[in-house]
Design a protein around this nucleic acid. Structure first.
Lengths: 244, 244
DNA sequence: CCCCCAGTTTAAAGATTTTGTAAAGGTGAG
DNA sequence: CTCACCTTTACAAAATCTTTAAACTGGGGG
């Protein structure tokens, strides 16, 4: 079941309903998130401020300090993304929560699936905010260029008809160019799920991608297999001659 | 966290909700912006025209003069970047805002983080666009032209009978021409609400819009489906021949 | 030098996801 | 009430993903 040494996303869930916590932890766990629960306001606040978490999911109704108060105090010191939950009935709270610096806000009655979707959106936004404009819209590797805005990869002057996963795979490899990416990392980053030893789907995608790149596993121009470790996009040392 | 040694960026926030102002000021303050608040239309207008601010964040619902009116009068004399906020439940009228010269437009339900991101984008743009006209009133894509003032889209010399949402959808796509817009972004920008996985309304609007544009999903002249990502208005490379 | 084994490649089949669109349902303006 | 419009629902079609399994590879031990 385990997810690894690789960067795992850690979440703090603050809610006094332990059953709910278990349920959510279990659900999010299946998608590779490590969920830790706190069951009171003060406890949640303390843990939030430990800065160990990538995001906090915060119920409003809490013993000790209510969710708004916890949020306010978190925001005094930290920018950790916070997603607030409300029990039924509280209409206007949404605005109040957002005004106070919550990153999103959703009813506790939402499906876990919705929670997951919003959570991802929040994490994505916060990841982007960190590097802000730093993200280049285009990555180039020899004759290969990848346009992130248009989601289009070109080899020479020919557009490659990649499927969504193939494109993502290429992007992830390209961003880690010169470093080996394990299958686990790849599947985590691309598909948001767990890797298990018999999972060959990454291999299959690599194979398909290579075919489209006209890349030969035995003497790769782009994707090199690193036995027992994973795959890596070659980092052409200065002076490498590519020919299309 | 701070914004640096360079001269501090000064922002004017015009909103009658003082609590909201405090919270935003506090949040943006953490990123090194100096935020000054005005709580009525006339006050906001007067301060905007003092030319002391690098940008203005303007709520629409205001006592005295509403946001649109304030914007109009600012634009009579000044090109200070203006970012408009719609309050909850208000009839969103992004187009009116943009057409009047707002630089960006976002729902008040957005998170502070989002506000910050857009603000940075606006500031960046305004720094760059010293000389060129802010918001073009007309966007042209091959035989398609979109007039924001008249709220009219023409295909060749024929006016398209678009519904309000279809028109906005087209505008949003056109403004992002060449970049993929996710369904989430689209629904956020057009309808001011959250996207959830089961929400197909964007697809339906796209379908309707395509029908009116006589655009075929399989080989789109205008709107391309980017599987698992969203939609994108084609950015015709220079020299592309359109025929109506 | 050959065999074996863990690890890899790949085609193919089956399962799943995503999309297009018609039609039904809902809502608000007039 | 009617009309215009937006959203939801439903379902089929298309595209894509994962699994499976058979063929392959490279290196170490014999």
């Amino acid at each position: 079941m385990q997810q690894s040494e690789t960067a795992q996303i850690r979440l703090l869930l603050v809610d006094d309903d332990t059953k709910f916590c278990r349920l959510i932890a279990e659900y999010l766990g299946r998608f590779g998130y490590a969920v830790v629960a706190a069951h009171s306001g003060p406890e949640g606040l303390k843990m939030s401020l430990s800065e160990q978490f990538h995001a906090v999911i915060l119920d409003i109704m809490l013993p000790g300090l209510d969710g708004f108060e916890v949020l306010r105090r978190i925001r005094e010191q930290s920018e950790t993304p916070v997603l607030m939950l409300t029990s039924l009935g509280e209409e206007t709270d949404r605005i109040v929560g957002l005004e106070m610096g919550a990153d999103d806000y959703l009813p506790k009655t939402s499906s876990p699936r919705e929670l997951l979707a919003r959570l991802r959106a929040v994490l994505r936004r916060s990841a982007r905010a960190v590097c802000d404009d730093a993200a280049p819209a285009e990555i180039t590797v020899g004759p290969l260029s990848i346009n992130l805005n248009a989601r289009l990869a070109m080899l020479g002057d020919e557009a490659l008809p990649l499927t969504p996963v193939e494109f993502e795979l290429l992007v992830v490899l390209a961003q880690a160019r010169g470093r080996v990416k394990s299958r686990e990392e790849l599947i985590n980053e691309i598909r948001d799920r767990h890797y298990d030893v018999y999972d060959r789907s990454i291999d299959v995608h690599v194979s398909a991608l290579r075919k489209k790149l006209r890349d030969d596993p035995k003497s790769p121009r782009f994707i090199r297999t690193v036995r027992a470790a994973g795959y890596m996009l070659v980092y052409p040392p200065a002076g490498t001659a590519y020919e299309s």
